[in-house]
């Protein structure tokens, strides 16, 4: 076993070079590089944690903003609905009034027209009576050769017309 056979000859060399190279590695890698690498890892972890926190904060802010916006929007909508209703009511009232006015105007016109028609009809009726009385007198004069008083003729026509 060379480990035992050579121990006397090689012990100092083994220990010396191990201390040299392990020591170099410890100083250069262990003390020089490892803290920096761990620092990088920690920096990254912090960055990730910070980013996550910022994202959470932004999300919360957006949520509150949205809530406020929703509230404002609802209020605006309600106000608009009120304005619309008011305008509708106003318009309805105005049109009802206009309609009522037009109705009365129409009614008056109608009544006026009806009286005019009634007057025309009664005057026409009187005209017909006169014409009929004249015609009856004429007929009597030609057929019977008798002269009938206009008043008698009128009364006779009236009587006939009343019986239809």
């Amino acid at each position: 076993m060379p480990q035992i056979e050579q121990i006397a000859a090689t012990l100092s060399s083994q220990v010396f070079w191990l201390l040299v190279f392990f020591g170099l590695t410890f100083v250069v890698v262990g003390l020089g590089m490892v803290p920096k690498i761990m620092g990088t890892v920690e920096m990254r972890d912090n960055q990730i944690a910070g980013d996550l926190a910022a994202a959470q904060a932004a999300r919360d802010a957006a949520t509150t903003e949205e809530e406020a916006w929703r509230k404002r929007e609802n209020a605006n909508r309600a106000a608009a609905q009120g304005v619309i209703g008011e305008a509708k009511a106003k318009a309805a009232a105005a049109s009802a009034a206009k309609l009522a006015e037009a109705q009365t105007r129409l009614d008056a016109k109608l009544a006026e027209a009806e009286t005019a028609i009634e007057a025309a009809r009664s005057s026409a009726m009187a005209e017909i009576e006169n014409v009929a009385a004249d015609a009856a007198r004429d007929i009597v004069a030609r057929v019977a050769g008798a002269e009938v008083e206009p008043a008698a003729a009128q009364a006779a026509v009236k009587e006939v017309m009343a019986h239809g």
Binding site: S12, S13, W17, F22, V29, I37, T40
Partner: peptide, 29 residues
């Protein structure tokens, strides 16, 4: 106290160099 540079010391040196190279490769931060 002889400190001859032996094959054992050579492989310790290679190990030290490779460990250093390996870790140095991760130093881009």
């Amino acid at each position: 106290f002889g400190i001859a540079f032996t094959n054992s010391a050579l492989w310790m040196a290679i190990t030290a160099v490779l460990v250093t190279v390996f870790v140095a490769g991760g130093m881009k931060r």
